[in-house]
Design a protein around this nucleic acid. Structure first.
Length: 191
DNA sequence: CGGCTGATGATCT
DNA sequence: GATCATCAGCCGG
């Protein structure tokens, strides 16, 4: 696993996220991420640890899950050494296993929309605060698997939905994927 | 497809 | 009391 937050954000594109829940197993291929780095005013850890964000300060590879807008859980992976607050937001998955279960959880049959967007993917995968702080590289219900499919062509853009440090190109996604969230016009930079 | 808006509640100041 | 790392639904072209 890369030592740098931006490297991790790129490294995660194409890898599989698996949740083995009581209701069944769901998994998806990560197609979109955003890095929230050290010294980044948009990062929740920017002002130091709190009860909510403490998982960002765990060794890289731990889950940070928080409630956004009082409605949606957003799933991140801590990305630096223990004591350093930074992480990678998982923004979209291409559904692999457990599509039928995802459809039930999401209340929708539309494959493309099941896990396209950070709030949708936690619903489809049934990820919430119970998973906050889990080591995603250890034995457990939620874990990171290997690369799925051919090597992805990765593009970069500005991050979505933030106002501070908004100009930085810290969003990464698989070029051409139908499962990437956000307006298409944000695409185009890098590769 | 792009643009807009209300919902909604934990968290932090 | 302000601030959100969003989403579904609605509208116009």
């Amino acid at each position: 696993m890369p030592v740098d937050s931006v490297e991790l954000a790129r490294f995660l594109i194409g890898r599989v996220l698996v949740h083995e829940s009581r209701a069944g197993t769901t998994s998806g291929r990560i197609v979109e991420t955003e890095a929230y780095v050290v010294g980044d005013a948009a990062c929740h850890a920017f002002r130091g640890p709190t009860a909510r964000n403490r998982s960002l300060f765990l060794e890289r590879g731990h889950a940070y899950v928080y409630l956004n807008y009082g409605v949606w859980y957003l799933f991140n992976i801590s990305s630096e050494s223990r004591g350093v607050g930074a992480g990678v937001l998982i923004r979209a998955l291409e559904p692999l296993e457990g599509v039928a279960l995802m459809q039930v959880r999401r209340g929708s049959d539309r494959l493309r929309d099941l896990a396209r967007g950070p709030g949708r993917l936690t619903v489809a995968m049934d990820i919430d605060r119970r998973h906050d702080g889990l080591d995603l590289c250890a034995d457990g219900p939620l874990w990171l698997g290997r690369i799925s499919g051919p090597a992805a062509q990765i593009a970069a853009s500005v991050r979505i939905g933030i106002t501070r440090d908004a100009h930085r190109l810290l969003r990464f996604y698989e070029r051409g994927s139908a499962f990437v969230s956000g307006p298409a016009r944000l695409g185009g930079a890098g590769g």
